[in-house]
Simulated assay, not measured.
Amino acid sequence: MATPLTADKLLAALRAEGVKVIEYKSWRTHNRNSRGAWGPVNGVMIHHTASTGTAASVDLCYDGYAGLPGPLCHGVVDKSGTVYMVGHGRANHAGSGDRAVLDRLIAETPPYKPTVNNTDGNARMYGFEAVNLGDGKDPWPEAQLDAIERVSAAICRAHGWTAGSVLGHLEWQRGKVDPRGFDMTTMRERVERRLKVSPGARPAAPRFEPFPGADFFRRYPRSPIVTAMGRRLVAEGCSAYAQGPGPQWTVADKNSYAKWQRKCGFTGADADGWPGRVSWDRLKVPKV
């Protein structure tokens, strides 16, 4: 548990981590403190806005809407990686979540899987909204993911927390899906790597592509990751391709991956062609 950072200290921590920050309107005094406490704080929560456009998204998160006044978070991360500070203090972002998840968050022991909504999260977490439709198709530019990583690391570093203090809204509140489009376990791994280097520095890029999450493939993505994966499958003698591989995930990719899973010793439902973390890590897909 920790006392929330002052506005000045929060801003300094973000900038020291290399985050491009814009102070929006009266963010330093914009909060919902009249409705309840903010603090002690235990973590950093990541959301998606379910909106498009920087200006409209920042305005929405600052003002809120009928039935849910702003601020709806503390900062908005746009697709360029710029962070707009829209509030400091209690914000309407986390809502009610699972007390058991809070206990694990305090102990910094993910994964987090909510089953009930019985505890106020607005009092206990920093919140950052990332501009994204959240439909599973809207892309997540690397600049935006890098900013989410840096924001999370900055706050963890300032409080002496580990990457286990970072979670997604879907990991706190039953029924939520955000952030949709990237994997929070992978994001925590990024934050963990960053915390091992000095603020503002860029951690050495991993040699291999981290597991992008099971949902990534089930959305039939078009990505250079798919091409790199396919080439590794061919190299391992697990090709089911008539042509390619290419960037579009297809049935041929799924069938090829099933061959790889069987080569790894998996059977049955564990060799259904949908990539999992263990088999993916063994495949060693080059970083793209």
Results as ranks from 00 to 15, higher is better:
residue 84 Y to P: 00
residue 59 D to Y: 05
residue 101 V to I: 10
residue 104 R to N: 13
residue 105 L to M: 12
residue 26 S to G: 15
residue 89 G to R: 01
residue 91 A to Y: 06
residue 52 T to P: 03
residue 104 R to H: 06
residue 38 W to F: 14
residue 56 A to C: 06
residue 40 P to I: 06
residue 82 T to I: 06
residue 33 N to C: 08
residue 64 G to R: 09
residue 105 L to P: 00
residue 25 K to Y: 12
residue 34 S to T: 09
residue 104 R to A: 10
residue 35 R to G: 09
residue 97 G to Q: 10
residue 114 P to Q: 05
residue 81 G to I: 03
residue 66 A to I: 14
residue 119 T to P: 03
residue 117 N to R: 06
residue 102 L to P: 01
residue 114 P to F: 09
residue 111 P to W: 14
residue 76 V to P: 02
residue 77 V to L: 03
residue 112 Y to A: 02
residue 59 D to M: 04
residue 90 R to I: 07
residue 46 I to P: 01
residue 40 P to S: 07
residue 84 Y to K: 00
residue 65 Y to V: 15
residue 117 N to Y: 10
residue 29 T to R: 05
residue 64 G to T: 12
residue 54 T to W: 12
residue 110 P to F: 14
residue 52 T to I: 14
residue 116 V to Y: 11
residue 98 D to R: 02
residue 59 D to F: 04
residue 115 T to C: 05
residue 65 Y to M: 11
residue 105 L to S: 02
residue 61 C to A: 14
residue 114 P to Y: 08
residue 35 R to V: 12
residue 59 D to C: 03
residue 69 P to R: 11
residue 89 G to D: 13
residue 41 V to Y: 05
residue 45 M to Q: 09
residue 118 N to F: 13
residue 60 L to F: 12
residue 81 G to F: 04
residue 27 W to Y: 11
residue 48 H to S: 10
residue 64 G to L: 11
residue 25 K to D: 12
residue 91 A to K: 07
residue 63 D to K: 04
residue 94 A to F: 03
residue 110 P to T: 15
residue 79 K to H: 07
residue 96 S to Y: 08
residue 100 A to H: 13
residue 32 R to W: 12
residue 34 S to F: 13
residue 68 L to Q: 11
residue 112 Y to T: 09
residue 102 L to Q: 11
residue 39 G to D: 03
residue 52 T to L: 15
residue 63 D to E: 15
residue 111 P to D: 10
residue 27 W to I: 02
residue 87 G to S: 04
residue 76 V to I: 14
residue 81 G to V: 02
residue 94 A to G: 04
residue 36 G to L: 08
residue 32 R to E: 13
residue 109 T to Y: 02
residue 98 D to E: 07
residue 102 L to T: 03
residue 92 N to G: 06
residue 45 M to E: 06
residue 73 C to T: 03
residue 80 S to D: 14
residue 64 G to S: 09
residue 63 D to N: 15
residue 87 G to V: 02
residue 118 N to H: 10
residue 54 T to K: 14
residue 26 S to V: 15
residue 75 G to K: 03
residue 93 H to Y: 05
residue 50 A to F: 06
residue 43 G to M: 00
residue 48 H to D: 13
residue 80 S to G: 08
residue 62 Y to I: 03
residue 60 L to V: 05
